[in-house]
């Protein structure tokens, strides 16, 4: 038997690690493509995003444990990740054409 609390805890740990990572990934992709669109050098943009990315990840990680609603956490982390990755892909396509 797995207790209710154990399930809740697992949910939070998974959201914090994988949800947080996915959001950070999407944010970095969006940040890089957006900066390249604005005329900034690709490697500059990439370096800039790596400096910010892990601080954002850290914030998301802690917020996942502090937040009252896990539904909201998942919506923002997964939704944000998907949305930002999608926009990044679109920006990349438009930059390459």
């Amino acid at each position: 038997m797995i207790s209710h609390t154990a399930l809740q805890t697992t949910n939070r740990v998974i959201a914090a690690i994988f949800g947080g990572y996915a959001f950070t990934w999407g944010l970095s992709a969006l940040g890089i493509t957006a900066m390249v669109t604005l005329g900034i050098d690709f490697h500059e943009a990439e370096t800039g995003m790596t400096l910010v990315a892990f601080l954002v990840f850290l914030g998301l990680f802690l917020w996942t444990f502090a937040s009252a609603s896990m539904l909201r956490v998942w919506l923002i982390l997964a939704g944000g990740a998907a949305l930002m990755s999608l926009i990044a892909s679109m920006l990349q396509t438009s930059l390459l054409s």
């Binding site: 992709a29 390249v36 690709f42 990439e46 790596t50 990315a53 990349q92």
Partner: peptide, 21 residues
């Protein structure tokens, strides 16, 4: 290790943009 291991965007999702660059 960010750009090579932890967030390897330029080898995966943004490879085309990276190669063009």
């Amino acid at each position: 290790f960010a750009s090579n291991v932890y967030l390897p965007l330029s080898y995966t999702m943004l490879k085309s943009l990276h190669d063009q660059h």
